[in-house]
Measured scan of single mutants.
Amino acid sequence: HMTFVALYDYVASGETDLSFKKGERLQIVNNTEGDWWLAHSLTTGRTGYISSNYVAPSD
């Protein structure tokens, strides 16, 4: 899985979204569905959809 880092804080707007904080590391589970990616937070252990605009590759 690809690992990304959050560029900004994000508060989930629905049950399927994932809230995260700036600097949080996220593993991308599925990024084939446009701008919203299914991600797993390595910080909180939660999984949900994130906006690809809010993250950048961590490598």
Score class of each variant (00 low, 15 high):
34 G>N: 08
6 A>H: 00
44 T>M: 02
58 S>L: 15
41 S>W: 01
7 L>E: 04
15 E>R: 07
12 A>N: 03
46 R>M: 12
21 K>F: 07
51 S>T: 06
53 N>V: 12
54 Y>N: 07
33 E>M: 12
26 L>E: 00
45 G>Y: 03
53 N>S: 14
45 G>M: 05
27 Q>K: 11
43 T>M: 06
48 G>P: 00
45 G>I: 03
53 N>L: 14
24 E>W: 08
37 W>M: 06
55 V>E: 02
17 D>E: 15
55 V>F: 10
39 A>E: 00
48 G>C: 04
33 E>I: 11
48 G>H: 02
44 T>I: 06
20 F>I: 05
19 S>F: 03
23 G>L: 02
45 G>Q: 05
8 Y>P: 00
18 L>N: 00
27 Q>R: 14
51 S>D: 14
57 P>N: 07
40 H>D: 02
16 T>L: 13
7 L>G: 03
53 N>I: 13
36 W>V: 12
43 T>A: 10
13 S>Q: 14
5 V>P: 01
43 T>R: 07
53 N>M: 14
32 T>V: 10
49 Y>E: 04
19 S>C: 05
34 G>F: 06
32 T>L: 11
23 G>E: 01
46 R>L: 13
23 G>Q: 01
2 M>F: 10
17 D>V: 08
30 N>E: 10
4 F>S: 02
39 A>D: 00
52 S>G: 08
13 S>H: 11
36 W>G: 05
14 G>H: 13
51 S>I: 09
13 S>R: 13
5 V>C: 07
10 Y>S: 05
8 Y>C: 15
37 W>G: 00
39 A>P: 00
7 L>R: 05
2 M>A: 10
9 D>W: 07
5 V>E: 07
25 R>D: 04
53 N>F: 14
51 S>V: 06
44 T>Q: 05
10 Y>C: 10
20 F>D: 00
10 Y>A: 04
13 S>V: 15
3 T>P: 04
6 A>Y: 02
58 S>F: 15
8 Y>F: 13
15 E>V: 10
24 E>C: 02
34 G>E: 08
30 N>I: 10
11 V>P: 04
11 V>E: 14
30 N>T: 10
15 E>F: 08
32 T>F: 10
23 G>N: 04
28 I>Y: 02
12 A>D: 02
40 H>R: 15
58 S>D: 15
48 G>V: 02
41 S>P: 00
46 R>P: 00
32 T>E: 09
22 K>S: 05
25 R>M: 14
32 T>S: 13
50 I>G: 00
38 L>P: 01
50 I>L: 07
11 V>G: 04
11 V>S: 08
50 I>D: 00
25 R>A: 07
9 D>S: 05
59 D>T: 12
34 G>Y: 08
1 H>S: 13
46 R>W: 07
17 D>F: 15
39 A>G: 05
26 L>Q: 00
3 T>H: 11
51 S>E: 07
11 V>Q: 11
39 A>M: 12
32 T>A: 11
40 H>Y: 14
45 G>C: 07
9 D>C: 06
47 T>F: 12
8 Y>L: 10
25 R>S: 07
43 T>D: 15
38 L>H: 02
27 Q>T: 11
50 I>P: 00
47 T>A: 05
17 D>Q: 15
31 N>V: 11
59 D>W: 14
35 D>Y: 08
25 R>P: 06
19 S>G: 06
24 E>P: 00
17 D>H: 14
22 K>C: 07
30 N>L: 10
37 W>F: 06
27 Q>Y: 14
22 K>F: 04
52 S>I: 10
44 T>V: 01
15 E>P: 14
30 N>S: 14
28 I>Q: 14
33 E>A: 11
28 I>V: 11
59 D>R: 09
32 T>N: 09
43 T>H: 08
59 D>L: 12
14 G>F: 12
47 T>M: 10
59 D>P: 13
46 R>C: 09
37 W>H: 03
31 N>R: 13
13 S>A: 11
15 E>T: 12
55 V>C: 07
46 R>V: 06
36 W>S: 08
41 S>I: 02
10 Y>D: 01
38 L>G: 00
12 A>M: 04
47 T>V: 11
4 F>T: 03
55 V>Y: 04
4 F>P: 01
59 D>F: 13
56 A>I: 14
33 E>N: 14
46 R>A: 09
26 L>T: 01
35 D>T: 12
6 A>L: 04
45 G>P: 00
26 L>H: 02
9 D>Y: 03
10 Y>W: 06
50 I>S: 00
10 Y>G: 02
1 H>L: 12
5 V>N: 02
22 K>G: 02
38 L>C: 11
41 S>H: 05
42 L>F: 07
6 A>C: 08
32 T>P: 08
16 T>I: 09
22 K>N: 02
43 T>Y: 05
56 A>C: 14
4 F>W: 13
8 Y>D: 08
52 S>T: 06
50 I>R: 00
35 D>V: 08
46 R>Q: 12
17 D>Y: 15
30 N>Y: 10
17 D>S: 08
35 D>N: 10
54 Y>Q: 09
24 E>Y: 01
21 K>R: 11
42 L>S: 05
37 W>P: 01
16 T>Q: 13
9 D>M: 06
16 T>S: 13
29 V>E: 06
31 N>T: 13
1 H>E: 12
22 K>V: 07
45 G>T: 02
9 D>N: 05
14 G>T: 14
56 A>S: 10
43 T>I: 09
57 P>M: 11
19 S>E: 06
59 D>Y: 13
55 V>D: 02
3 T>C: 13
7 L>T: 05
5 V>D: 04
15 E>D: 13
47 T>D: 06
2 M>D: 10
57 P>H: 09
56 A>T: 13
24 E>K: 00
11 V>C: 11
48 G>R: 01
37 W>Y: 05
44 T>E: 01
57 P>V: 10
52 S>C: 11
59 D>S: 12
38 L>I: 06
7 L>N: 03
34 G>M: 07
45 G>D: 05
16 T>W: 15
39 A>C: 03
57 P>W: 10
27 Q>N: 07
56 A>P: 05
49 Y>V: 05
52 S>F: 07
20 F>K: 00
17 D>P: 02
55 V>R: 01
27 Q>M: 14
10 Y>Q: 03
19 S>Y: 03
8 Y>A: 10
12 A>H: 04
30 N>Q: 10
46 R>H: 08
4 F>L: 07
57 P>T: 08
23 G>T: 01
30 N>F: 09
58 S>N: 09
39 A>L: 03
41 S>F: 02
40 H>I: 15
10 Y>P: 00
54 Y>A: 15
20 F>T: 02
25 R>E: 10
37 W>E: 00
18 L>A: 04
28 I>D: 00
42 L>T: 06
59 D>V: 12
40 H>K: 15
53 N>P: 06
23 G>H: 04
46 R>T: 05
21 K>G: 05
27 Q>G: 04
2 M>Q: 13
31 N>W: 13
5 V>M: 06
23 G>P: 01
48 G>T: 01
53 N>H: 14
49 Y>K: 05
50 I>Q: 00
3 T>A: 06
3 T>N: 08
43 T>N: 08
10 Y>N: 05
52 S>E: 05
9 D>T: 06
44 T>L: 01
33 E>D: 14
6 A>M: 04
30 N>A: 11
16 T>R: 14
47 T>L: 08
43 T>C: 12
55 V>W: 05
8 Y>S: 08
23 G>W: 04
20 F>V: 07
11 V>D: 12
54 Y>M: 15
25 R>N: 06
58 S>M: 15
21 K>E: 08
38 L>W: 09
48 G>D: 01
32 T>D: 10
31 N>E: 08
48 G>Q: 01
18 L>Q: 01
14 G>M: 11
51 S>H: 15
41 S>G: 01
5 V>W: 04
37 W>V: 07
44 T>Y: 02
12 A>W: 02
55 V>I: 09
28 I>K: 07
49 Y>H: 05
9 D>G: 04
13 S>G: 08
5 V>L: 06
40 H>C: 13
6 A>P: 01
18 L>C: 03
13 S>T: 15
52 S>D: 03
16 T>F: 15
49 Y>S: 03
9 D>E: 05
42 L>C: 12
51 S>M: 14
6 A>W: 02
46 R>I: 06
8 Y>N: 06
5 V>Q: 04
1 H>C: 15
47 T>G: 04
38 L>S: 02
11 V>M: 10
12 A>G: 12
18 L>S: 02
40 H>T: 15
